[in-house]
Design a protein around this nucleic acid. Structure first.
Lengths: 121, 121
DNA sequence: ACTTCATTTCGTTAATTGGCGAAGTATAGA
DNA sequence: TCTATACTTCGCCAATTAACGAAATGAAGT
């Protein structure tokens, strides 16, 4: 039960659901997820920690970058929960909009993307 | 997305998950659910309202009593979510304990149960 | 009509949560 | 070794939430 509640709590915020959906097509760097959500880096990092703690995602370090992806060896409950998420919201307006935005984000290189974040305003 | 978040928020509290599981074998009266959870009537009522608003349960009035049950005509998302709940926690210790307690509660009649609530302590 | 009783609504309180910016950590490059 | 950079942790604030008891609602029995 405790594990299940941890999973549902993780899923009970739309920004976290957006993060999971963004990762459903493969791993992404934190800076790309920050750009997608348009939130402060610290906020995005916190959301990622919550998803990771619920064992829905895992991460990998490569130099200065950290890549997150859907947890390949997620628990049975986590796997079922991920299926639910993707089954319910994959074709929602919000997620389709995110998908389109991510295409644009991927066109920019990671290096340029991070520099761009600094230039904002 | 909004509907989905409303569902996951509803599922992100263990008392509400316990309520759903209690109802998975058929409808129950509020007084029986109060006895099961051991919480204040107003608290249980609020939890039921949240579950109902997420379209996971529905209710029926019969005289002074109100019976709740799993929503038979739940939305596709709600149905999938209910499957997830039952698939993940039906055989957890907490729910098995609740199942046993409910057998005892059902032995007491509703009338006696409500009177018993007053006699507490 | 009046009372009783099952449930809900309201108001309050303590705890949790989502957001941010500042400070901290760790890695790459000069 | 010093700086820049990518991310995380910490400390704070505003908003939300779970809990309760008191008051309101509404149906039955007297």
């Amino acid at each position: 039960m405790r594990e299940f509640i941890e999973i549902t709590k993780a899923l009970s915020d739309s920004n976290r659901v957006r993060l999971l959906c963004a990762l459903r097509n493969g791993e992404l760097c934190v800076c790309q997820l920050i750009e997608l959500l348009g939130l402060a880096p610290s906020t995005v990092s916190k959301h990622l920690t919550i998803l990771k703690h619920a064992r829905l995602i895992e991460c990998r370090k490569e130099g200065r970058w950290v890549f997150y992806r859907i947890d390949e060896i997620a628990s049975p409950d986590a796997k079922k929960a991920l299926d639910l998420v993707f089954g319910c919201v994959s074709d929602s307006d919000e997620i389709l909009r995110d998908d389109r935005k991510m295409v644009e984000i991927l066109k920019i290189g990671r290096e340029e993307l991070c520099r761009k974040t600094e230039l904002k305003e």
